[in-house]
Design a protein around this nucleic acid. Sequence first.
DNA 1: TAACATATTAACCAAACATTAACAACAAAA
DNA 2: TTTTGTTGTTAATGTTTGGTTAATATGTTA
Lengths: 242, 242
Amino acid sequence: MENENKKILLVEDDPNFGSILKDYLILNDFDVTLAKNGMEGFEKFKKDTFDLCILDVMMPYKDGYTLAKEIREKNKEVPIIFLTAKSMKDDVLKGYKVGADDYLNKPFDSEVLLMKIKAIIQRKSSEVKADATKFEFIIGNFHLNSKLRFLTYKDTEPIKLSPKENELLKMLAVYENDLMPRELALTKIWRDDNYFTSRSMDVYIAKLRKYLKMDDEVEILNIHGEGFRLVVKNKPPAPAAE
Amino acid sequence: MENENKKILLVEDDPNFGSILKDYLILNDFDVTLAKNGMEGFEKFKKDTFDLCILDVMMPYKDGYTLAKEIREKNKEVPIIFLTAKSMKDDVLKGYKVGADDYLNKPFDSEVLLMKIKAIIQRKSSEVKADATKFEFIIGNFHLNSKLRFLTYKDTEPIKLSPKENELLKMLAVYENDLMPRELALTKIWRDDNYFTSRSMDVYIAKLRKYLKMDDEVEILNIHGEGFRLVVKNKPPAPAAE
DNA sequence: TAACATATTAACCAAACATTAACAACAAAA
DNA sequence: TTTTGTTGTTAATGTTTGGTTAATATGTTA
């Protein structure tokens, strides 16, 4: 089973909910460690290596955010999912700033959680390339250097990219041929997800489309309500993911 | 209490342990039938319908595995939990092969058992859609990618699906060749089950039928008053997968 | 054959997206 | 210190998409 040996650190103070969720994840072939508060969570985090952390936000002794911050200090990569109470919408933002990969309102659909876990783990595993170290991308006949922020088409003069253009195109490239969720780009690049940042992002998509127009094998497609997809046609067979 | 009317078949040869466990489960609002060996267990199994079976592995006359196999022949769905002696780790595998949902080493923590029971029963009740996290489906000559929301017929241009079209087709695919209850789709996808959402769903069924028309091996049938059924004729010999 | 369930097409409205342009903030250059 | 340029946000406007409801069949069951 594909989830096997993926280690999850689950930090949840409600013992009932915690162990049920744990069982559910175990049934789905994850290797789960349960901690019942932030203190214990951090202890367990230090003692092992996890592929994913699921943190309840409201906990005694040490809340989810604080724990997340500590975890981040130790490890900048490990994906974090927050579980928050339905009401507190603001918390979401606060969570993202700490570098959460996702959040879920309680009560939530267990399937949704599974989906998010899968998506995150899959992404992380293919994101090695996205890791700050990588800054060169081949996009069809383009070459993107995201460190020097320019985009070159074949042998023509490089196009200078603004910081936002650059980050957005880079993120699209990381998700090449796959869905780049709108929400993700907004929270990661714009650091806020609201009506206006969303309009702003549309503007940048339009700018990028203009640049990419010269190569008709490259295209940015919209998936209504979900996000965008950078498609590159005639791409070699693809490494047959998984 | 939520456990009420959940029927458990408990097969355990040790009369002391058996009746204590039985009482414990009854205290937790389960409806428990106790059998003291595999023979008796199978007799009782045939006479009633259970939501869960808890089988001791080592028993005279008919051991737990043999019983489990017989039960599986009669019923492929009912969850089975094995109780095994602490030592025999190998048994675990053997148990899973019979289709056990879980196992517990004796002696075990009664609360752990309760938790497992809960988790299993909950899972079973929502497992039909077990693969809801999957997002690629083969439907006859079609290929559905429910993450990117498109449907491809052979090598033709992909058809873009709207969120509702996509979710509905996905649910049909999960229930392939089986009944997809109308009510389920309405509550899951439309989040409401009333006259209007029901009409709306009909509209979507019509849309999907139009898409699927190009392959005459694929068809959405209605089961009057019950729901719909996505039938795929001449299903290929099965990709041997799994 | 009434009552009800399903089928199909079309009309409509709201939300999401696309694109260009105006503008504000700020920095670099003259 | 003006001037010029770059960057990003907001506005204005138009287009597309998605979902519900309506209108009008046809089927199914008791």
